[in-house]
Amino acid sequence: MTLTQENLSELREIAARYPEARSGLLPMLHLVQSIEGRITPEGIEVCAEILDISAAEVSGVATFYTMYKRRPVGDYHVGVCTNTLCAVMGGDAIFDKLKCHLDVGNDETTEDGKITLEHVECNAACDYAPVMMVNWEFMDNMTPESAVELVDDLREGKEVRSTRGPRIVTWREAERVLAGFPDDLADEGPAAGPASLVGLEIARENGWTAPEAGQEESK
């Protein structure tokens, strides 16, 4: 694939958000993935040219960060958290089940090009363990059964919703948002999942609040 004029102008637009253009590199690489489905040599060249740095420098950055992929990613990047807390709570079992069900290994894509399976590190959702991520949307409190159902639905093209977010978009569409070009899904999904609210609910039941302002001022 060749990058279009529009692609190039969007890449320049990212660089222009920052006092120094090079700061745009991380989001620019997200945009490259959104256009190309991975980090391509051409994408690297173009970023280097826009930022006036060497392709080797861009390549060095692209290989440092785990979200950048050299091999094509499927429509759905399916992550299973196998950091300790999730692993213990069942993430290891879920990951094993999916490898077997999809017949792929870690960081591999199914033959139909739909799903790339990867184990991921703690995604800041431990209170919803075991956690999965589809195109970096939260899928909370998973089981091996719900995980299999999830990937089957994705492969069959059924609409899937994040447990704390919107309907799942494709990996490329997601990468575009990460590049700083928002879609219109911010208002979908709840403000908070159930676990985020447990402390608040207990406080409400007991009438517990922070002190009223001004009460302590006299001290």
């Binding site: 995604n123 970096w136 949307e137």
Partner: peptide, 9 residues
């Protein structure tokens, strides 16, 4: 962090 799409939105 990049891995939290909806939060970024």
């Amino acid at each position: 962090r990049g891995e939290v799409l909806h939060v970024i939105r």
